[in-house]
């Protein structure tokens, strides 16, 4: 656990690097931090238009009869954007700080962690605003927020794990980032964000549910659903939806697997990073 100790010792540096990321991000833009809100709002508007008006998909029903596609969408989309931004940011972090890596010693993991944490700050602000909107709409989310925070912590570990591995790989093979860009697109659609989990389960996979007559018989295999749920973001997304949209405790598998997967990913990420890190100053 030398990694943890070393990072803990450099927490002050970590704080400063996060600040640098945050300050640098919106410096010299007139709207500044508002951009952090505008981007997801624009996306939400776009998807709402496409799905609610073009495809006429019904809005999922939440707690107390809440029916709002944009709110449902944002609950899943914001943490996914965090994942995507964190991964993309991590991949650029080493290359962008090549000067630093070549000239000063400090635990290099810090650059990745700072990058991810800076996106955490964005996520927290966005989720904060979203919670206020949910409250206004009558969804009393407050008692569920501590669990949401814990999930965000787990997701952060997940993103740091991926970021650590991909950031060093990207130094050796610069086209990793292009693969990842495509993969993130697929990942978004493989996660219940712009559609609901139950819609995918019942209408796309058509997994037989006891006491429910399946509508299609396309792929009625339970293992396909299982495979689908290997993606930890499915569990994360389901849990966020359950806690904030439906105001209920998530299904326990949707909690346990993402958390376990996060720790596993982090462990692998640290391994990969440690393995490839020694030659970093030369390869950059």
């Amino acid at each position: 656990m030398t990694v943890v100790a070393e990072v803990a010792r450099s927490r002050e540096l970590l704080g400063n690097l996060v600040q640098r990321e945050l300050r640098g991000k919106y410096k010299r833009s007139t709207l500044g931090w508002a951009w952090s809100m505008i981007n997801p709002l624009a996306l939400a508007l776009m998807y709402t238009f496409v799905f609610s008006f073009v495809f006429r998909a019904g809005s999922p029903v939440g707690a107390h009869g809440l029916k709002s596609f944009p709110l449902y969408l944002l609950i899943g989309l914001l943490p996914f954007n965090f994942l995507a931004n964190g991964i993309n940011g991590s991949m650029g972090a080493l290359v962008a700080n090549a000067n630093l890596v070549k000239k000063v010693y400090f635990p290099r993991e810090i650059l990745i962690i700072a990058q991810v944490l800076s996106w955490d700050v964005s996520l927290l602000i966005e989720y904060g605003v979203l919670s206020v909107v949910l409250l206004v709409m009558g969804n009393l989310v407050i008692p569920f927020l501590p669990l949401v925070l814990l999930l965000i912590v787990a997701e952060t570990l997940f993103v740091i794990g991926i970021g650590l591995a991909l950031s060093v790989l990207n130094v050796y093979f610069r086209d990793v980032q292009h693969f990842v860009a495509i993969f993130l697109q697929l990942w978004l659609y493989a996660t219940p964000i712009i559609y609901t989990y139950s819609f995918f389960r019942d209408h796309v996979l058509a997994v037989p549910v006891p006491g429910k007559v399946p509508t299609h018989h396309v792929w009625n295999h339970e293992w396909l659903l299982w495979l689908y749920k290997v993606n930890p973001m499915v569990g994360f997304s389901n849990s966020y939806h359950a806690l904030m949209y439906n105001l209920r405790f998530p299904v326990w598998t949707d909690l346990v697997w993402p958390v376990v997967a996060s720790f596993l990913t982090l462990a692998v990420g640290v391994r990969v990073f440690r393995k490839l890190e020694p030659r970093l100053a030369e390869e950059l």
Partner: peptide
């Protein structure tokens, strides 16, 4: 290298703290 890690957009003051912690 002097000033490695200075962030161009940040002020001298902010960079002193940043560089110091590096």
């Amino acid at each position: 290298e002097l000033g490695a890690g200075f962030h161009p957009e940040l002020s001298g003051r902010e960079n002193v703290y940043l560089n110091g912690s590096i």
